[in-house]
């Protein structure tokens, strides 16, 4: 009897160990690119993933970070380099450009009007929808610091956290799908 109990306890420990190794129904994405097309694709996948019953985590880093700036917010007290980055990088979704066929902004404008005509949601609408659907956003603290962005200039988003690579990896390890975009 005692031997049986011991065996059962052992099996339970083993099972717990196995369960820990099974990823959740989750998708983790790194949004590295600051291109409009890639950002759109990221949010189409994100919102579609929610529909498919997945939890969604998006980790914005490097060129992806300025997508989440709020065009209506300005912050002062930046040093020269930070100010320069601030001016040169897109300030929010409206300034994000296509990776191809931008043609000095003409291509991006054409794509946007085409999207409107074809009823495709804009990046702005996509982000809002993602928020409503419970898509979790992480923003890379190191990118924020490097580019001199302050938290006060980022968009209002329901579930937005600043973090480092470890948090992303923790989420990625617990995900069935990991994408780098």
């Amino acid at each position: 009897m005692e031997a049986l109990e011991k065996q059962l306890a052992e099996m339970k420990t083993q099972l717990d160990g196995i369960n820990k190794k099974i990823p959740s129904n989750k998708i983790s994405m790194i949004v590295f690119s600051g291109d409009l097309d890639r950002a759109l694709a990221s949010f189409v996948i994100a919102t579609g993933s929610v529909a498919m019953g997945l939890d969604v985590v998006m980790f914005f880093t490097f060129w992806g970070t300025p997508i989440l700036r709020d065009k209506n917010k300005s912050v002062g007290g930046k040093d020269l380099m930070s100010s320069m980055f601030g001016v040169m990088l897109p300030k929010g979704v409206d300034q994000v450009k296509l990776s191809k066929m931008n043609m000095g902004g003409m291509g991006t404008s054409m794509m946007k009007s085409l999207m409107k005509k074809k009823n495709v949601a804009s990046l702005d609408q996509m982000i809002q929808m993602a928020g409503e659907l419970g898509v979790k956003i992480y923003v890379c603290e190191m990118s924020m610091d490097l580019m001199g962005f302050k938290r006060e200039e980022m968009i209002q988003y329901p579930d937005l956290t600043y973090c480092g690579v470890a948090k992303f990896l923790e989420e990625a390890m617990d995900s069935r799908i990991q994408l780098f975009i």
Binding site: T47, G48, A51, M52, G53, N119, V120, A121
Partner: peptide, 13 residues
């Protein structure tokens, strides 16, 4: 009607 990807599955879910 008239909604492109990913809206149909997002809405239906």
């Amino acid at each position: 009607k008239g909604l492109p990807c990913p809206m149909p599955v997002v809405k239906v879910s």
